[in-house]
Write a protein that binds this DNA or RNA. Structure first.
Lengths: 143, 143
DNA sequence: CTGCGTGCAAAGTATTTGCAAACCG
DNA sequence: CGGTTTGCAAATACTTTGCACGCAG
């Protein structure tokens, strides 16, 4: 749990203005500790303001993703979902398909594969996508 | 390169009717050896028939993907792209961001991570997504 | 024949864009 | 004050759906 001051500093470091809407967006995403779509975020915070447009939420989430504050979650319906990403540095995520909880996975096995891959493709690797799906402890029990 | 007979058998095994349109779709996807969107496939084969609807291509590609004959490629624009997947069994892909070539990666690092992951999340892992992006031998040289 | 496959037209809907007004620093 | 940020409305465009007809097995 972060304080408003933390978010202020976070945004300032990125050269982004700390508007009330950005702060609310960040707070909701972090509190939930689950991935949310722009519309879901919008539903959760819109009433706190006299007006809040859905495009604003889309734009802010996209911006924050570019800066690595939040990260996209892959979903089979190919819609946009984001997760507040507390961990810095390279890592990946486990995503619970039931409750949407996301957990950081500090290990990255792809790094270890890269030498093999480079030899095989005789090219360069610039990025990779990795996400592990399943059921978290709580949800696996209920199955 | 497969023959029409190969595709006939392939479709039969899946319980799908071997229509001329399905055969053309499969042949194009395999020949290209690159990922293509439904619309791109449609453009390439529509003139061979007196009529061919884009929805038909969407439906067939979705169906073939379900049966594991072709596989989805992740793209930053979140549109649908498919790749004809010659390799059977569990594997992942290297995708060239320049020429769209896809190459099978027989190694799966995630399998090795799973024990670690399961301990960490105390849940169950049901699936994972892994894709390596970069530039293939030919395209890396041109950069 | 008989049920899967397809064409066509139409809907759906998440996401994006443009521009003027509001606001943070 | 000056450049961001936002609201609103509208557009975009990919993808999906419904239904009647046609064709593969």
């Amino acid at each position: 749990m972060k304080t408003t001051t933390d978010y202020l500093a976070l945004l300032k470091n990125l050269g982004l203005k700390a508007t009330p809407k950005r702060l609310a967006l960040l707070a909701v995403l972090e509190e939930e500790h689950r991935y949310l779509s722009p519309e879901e975020v919008w539903r959760k915070i819109r009433r706190r303001f006299k007006s809040l447009g859905l495009p604003t939420v889309y734009r802010n989430m996209e911006e924050l993703e570019r800066h690595g504050v939040i990260s996209k979650v892959l979903h089979s319906n190919r819609q946009l979902y984001y997760y507040f990403c507390p961990k810095a540095g390279h890592h990946h995520h486990f995503v619970c398909m039931e409750c949407r909880m996301v957990e950081d996975l500090p290990v990255c096995a792809v790094r270890e594969m890269e030498k093999d891959i480079k030899r095989r493709i005789k090219g360069t690797v610039t990025s990779h996508v990795l996400q592990v799906n399943g059921f978290c402890g709580g949800c696996a029990g209920k199955q």
